[in-house]
Amino acid sequence: MKRSNNGLKRIIQISLLASVATLLMLIQIPYPGAGWLKFDISNIPVLIGGCALGPIAGLLIVIIKLFLFGIIRSSPGELMGLPMNLIANGTLVLVTSYIYRRVKTQENALFSLFVGVIVSTLIMIPANYFVLPLYLKFFAPNIPIPPPSQMLTMLFTVVIPFNLIAGFLNISLTFIVYKRVSAFIRPDAQINLQSGKDVRARSRG
C-alpha cells in the first residue's frame, strides 16, 4: 500500500514538474545574433526533479516537456531544435542529478550543477558541428556549406557563449529555488497553503 502510493505520487510529481517546465519554455527570449537559439528557464523544474526524484525522472521531465512543447508550438523551425534540446538538457540533468544524489550537500550541489553545465556545453560542440550543415542543407539546398574554419568560428563566438549563459542562468536560479522548495517534494511533506508554509519546511529554516 505504502509502496504503491509513493510510485503513483512520483509519477504525478514528474507530470506536474513537466507541466511547469513546458510553461516556462513557452516564455522564450531570442538570443541576439542567432535567431534559432533561444533562452528559457525551463531547466529549473527539470533540475529540481532530477535532484529530488532521480536522474531518470529528470530525463522523463525533459522528454515530456519537449513533447508537449512540440504539440503546442508545432512550427517546423522549432521542431528541428527539439532533438538538440533533448541532447543538451538531457546531459545536463543526468550529469547533475547523478553527482548530486551521491552526496547531498550544498557544496556538492553547486559542484554538480557546475559540472552539468560544462559537460552539456562540451557535448553541444560536436552536436552543433554536425547538425548545422545538415540543417542548412535541408532548408537551403543550393547554398554552399560554410567551410570548417568558418563553422568553428561560429561555434566559439555564438554557440558556446549561448550554452554557457543559458546554463548558468538556469543553474543559479535552480540553486536558489531548490533549497526553498525541496521540503515540499519529499513523500511525507504535508502542504498547507493557507498557512503558506509546510510545517516541516519551516522547522528546517
Binding site: 502510493n5 503513483l8 505520487k9 504525478i12 510529481q13 507530470s15 506536474l16 514538474l17 507541466s19 511547469v20 528557464i41 529549473i44 523544474p45 529540481i48 542562468l169 543559479s172 536560479l173 536558489i176 529555488v177 526553498r180 522548495v181 515540499f184 517534494i185 511533506a189 502542504i191 497553503l193
Partner: peptide, 28 residues
C-alpha cells in the same frame, strides 16, 4: 531581472507540488 523571477518561481513550484499531492490522494 533573474532575481525578480524568484518571488514568482517559488510559489509556482509550491502550487505545483500541492496539486501533485491532491491528485495523488484523489487517484489513490
Amino acid at each position: 531581472k533573474a532575481k525578480s523571477l524568484l518571488p514568482i518561481l517559488v510559489p509556482l513550484f509550491v502550487h505545483a507540488f500541492k496539486h501533485a499531492e491532491d491528485l495523488a490522494v484523489a487517484m489513490e
